[in-house]
């Protein structure tokens, strides 16, 4: 229910037109910017581009993380191969040293007991 006060408020707040060349000024501003409206399809592609642009940094970060991981795995494999090679060389050196020690011990034994 409206009373006299509200009717006065309605009258006080009746709509008012802007200056006569308002639409011309809006058009001038449209001309200054890119004046063509964005069709719905364009808006969809824009939305897709925005979404894609959100995914791009995530994809780049994932690539960097995967790359670092691959480098670390390769380094680990190389280290393991080097360790294995060093182990083989150490066993070979111990084997040679053992043979030499046995030969020296046999020679010493022969010197101590020439008749045996």
């Amino acid at each position: 229910m409206t009373d006299e006060f509200e009717q006065a408020l309605h009258r006080a707040l009746r709509k008012q037109d802007p200056a006569v060349d308002f639409s011309a000024r809006v058009e001038a501003r449209l001309d200054q910017s890119d004046g063509s409206p964005l069709p719905a399809a364009h808006l969809d592609s824009l939305r897709r581009r925005v979404l894609r642009s959100r995914w791009l940094p995530a994809a780049l970060a994932a690539c960097v993380i995967a790359g670092v991981g691959l480098v670390q795995v390769r380094q680990h494999v190389l280290d393991a191969a080097r360790a294995n090679q060093a182990r083989h060389q150490l066993l070979q050196a111990l084997s040679i040293a053992s043979d030499n020690i046995n030969a020296v011990r046999a020679a010493v034994a022969r010197e101590e007991n020439p008749n045996s």
Partner: peptide, 9 residues
Amino acid sequence: VSVHRHLGK
């Protein structure tokens, strides 16, 4: 100007 850019919606 804003509504002109979004008329498609």
